[in-house]
Simulated scan of single mutants.
Amino acid sequence: MPVKNRFAELLPEITEWRRDLHENPEILFETHRTSALVEEKLKAFGCDEVVTGIGRTGVVGVIRGKTNTSGKVIGLRADMDALPIHEETGLDYASKTPGAMHACGHDGHTAMLLGAAKYLAETRNFDGTAIVIFQPAEEGGGGGREMCEDGMMETFGIQEVYGMHNWPGVPLGQFAIRPGAFFAATDQFEIKVVGRGGHGAKPHQTVDPVVASAHMVSALQSIASRSADPVDEIVVSVTSIESSSKAFNVIPAAVTLRGTIRTMTKAARALAETRLKAIANGAAATFDAEAQIKWLPGYPAMVNSEEQTAFAASVAEKVAGSCEANAPITMGGEDFAYMLEERPGAYILVGNGDSADVHNPNYNFNDEAIPAGCSWWAGIIEERMPAA
């Protein structure tokens, strides 16, 4: 099952959809235009049902095969939202919305799943039901969680679920996947170090939160280097240090640290939270300051199911001729994790070639990846639920 000829025929049309989406990016749950376009096309394709408003602005389409003796129901998910980034590509179809850009390729994901939906609705050469899921707010909003909380899996009887993301650096149209934990949990923290401000020439009359926070930044690195098992993947990054003072001779009353911790297991995640709180409180107390800590839980680790991953890799190998079946772990986050907590499934990467990285103002989804991505999604349905 190589790339399907039908997707080569549909490439100009799908590319047109993708570039329209790129030109009109929408952020988080505000995917009103995008969701309406998806709804319109799914209805035009002849989907058996099209349901909107799941997870606020999510859209779900139902496509029934020629037969349903298997009773299987498989979900395919694409994300729709853009990022709050100002585009710098200079493309003819660059974003028309200042401060918003499809810098992660969700325009490509949506277009590819629409292409697969059109093909599946035309052919229906499978025994079961395909559910196409278009999700808002992947970029930090937890749209996947909200769709699950709205009862999507139960409403449509989804038994397995599959997702895909384009990946710069992977050869164009090739695939990469791994079983087990693939993307990291993405927790955040904010620590306000409260002291007593004063004149920079009289530090003995102050409780200096700058000194306390400097020690805290160094001490937090011991979570990875001394608290966690060396074989566990864990990243601790303090990404912001702010105080209210801009003067050279003023010791501020407070300093705020912000950052992120990335982990791959529930145990490491719990350990990181416990140690961060202990270290922050201890470091602050050492200098007579106070630590006011906010732990902000993010997405859980995204864990691919063993059986479904092997199946997804086999489909990818048939489409592309090969598949990297033990891809490197990424410490980035992905809220498809919520769907994989609800149902077994797998998440795969499709190569975007030698492009700018995602979340970069010069990134652009490579339209030449569309036939491979569409073929993989269609193959998941046709091979997992072969026609009776």
Rank of each mutant, 00 (worst) to 15 (best):
E87P: 04
P98A: 01
G99F: 07
G108Y: 09
G90C: 06
T97K: 10
C148V: 15
T110V: 06
D127I: 06
Y93A: 01
A116P: 09
E138Q: 11
K118L: 02
T89H: 00
Y93W: 14
A137L: 02
A137M: 00
L113W: 03
G157F: 10
A137I: 00
Y93C: 06
N125T: 12
E146Y: 14
M112F: 13
Y93F: 15
N125K: 14
H106K: 13
G105E: 05
D92K: 15
G128C: 12
M152S: 03
G90K: 05
I131H: 05
G128V: 13
I158D: 03
H106S: 12
T155G: 08
Q135A: 04
M112R: 14
K96H: 04
A103W: 03
R124P: 02
G151S: 10
G143N: 04
F134Q: 01
A103K: 05
F126Y: 15
L114P: 11
G115H: 05
M112T: 13
D92L: 12
G151H: 09
P84V: 07
A130T: 08
M153F: 15
M101G: 02
L91G: 00
G90L: 04
G99H: 08
M153H: 05
T129N: 08
P136H: 04
G90N: 05
G157P: 10
H106C: 13
A116V: 11
A121L: 09
T110G: 04
I85E: 05
T155S: 13
Y93E: 01
G143V: 04
L120A: 01
A130E: 07
H106P: 14
R124L: 05
E149Q: 15
I131Q: 09
D150R: 14
P84C: 03
